[in-house]
Design a protein around this nucleic acid. Sequence first.
DNA 1: TATCCGTGGAG
DNA 2: TCTCCAAGGAT
Length: 346
Amino acid sequence: MTHPAHADLILDWYDHNRRRLPWRAEAGQVPDPYHVWLSEVMLQQTTVQTVADYYRRFLTRWPRVQDLAQAPLDDVLTEWAGLGYYARARNLHKCAAMVVARHRGSFPADEAALRLLPGIGDYTAAAISAIAFDIPAAVMDGNIERVVSRLFAVEEPLPAAKPRLKALVADLTPQQRPGDYAQAMMDLGAMVCTPRRPACGLCPVSARCVARISDDPERFPLKSPKPDKPTRYGAVFWLTRKDGAVLLRRRAEKGLLGGMMEVPGTEWLDQRPPAPLGDAPVKAEWQRLEGGVRHTFTHFHLDLSIYRAAVGLGDPKLGTWVTPDRFGEVALPTLYRKVAKAVLGR
DNA sequence: TATCCGTGGAG
DNA sequence: TCTCCAAGGAT
């Protein structure tokens, strides 16, 4: 009696459960490295459902990497608005330019060369190499971490366990169809070996999963405790001129929401600013709006109060004046769309 | 190694 | 309402 190899079980499962995704080549088709790269960057820490529409819009507007490389950065930031982690958009644009300038518009195939490009780290380099070029790179994302930690019941908590898990992935990765294998393992983690209530009855490798056999699979992967999030406070100033346009400004190029537009406001501090109007862009009859906006970032909560006022003619030196019906045409992140919604009632 | 960097959905 | 977490990268 023979035991099918792990990779064969995974690939057979994949062949019968292949998901149709906007960026995924059909079986037997050759993937486009530009499509693979664009989707992988968008999918960093972002769900498949959220990415789908953004991916289609980007590809429609910039069909080739040369098109993206030539686009103004502000156009890219505007299309990216709402996706989050805006350094990805800045690096995406920079990377496109480097691929055109240094690689004649063709993405390199090997991990080391990919790793030199901005916005491409260990995971994305391996994923592009495997998926776009079918090179047996060890691809490990959050899904695969979970699958492998359960397969071997790894007791070491994340993130310290990453090197151990990566070595296991390297051992498991087959020489044949490594790109399909990587996508299969990610699909398995997303659809079967889920964080809560994994569907072990549907898993092609449950018979050899140590966590499934000997214990509660949901216990894995173990994780180190995360620090709790502090709350910061600030105020924003919603200034309208006679035609209804609102004052917006460009944020600093780096750091939180770097390069994006904002509604002018105070600094964000550990306590509610005692005299926020001192930071208002103009002297005016500022009225505080009932309520405000609460928004949660990766590592802190933000509690914003909103002040509003009106002027006749808006001074262009103060910033950019944009009517709310044109907010879709500027790089306004979700935080400030929430502010607009709070003021306008949608 | 630890911290910073968004957002939306699920439970 | 709150926590977790999703195809991570840069510093």
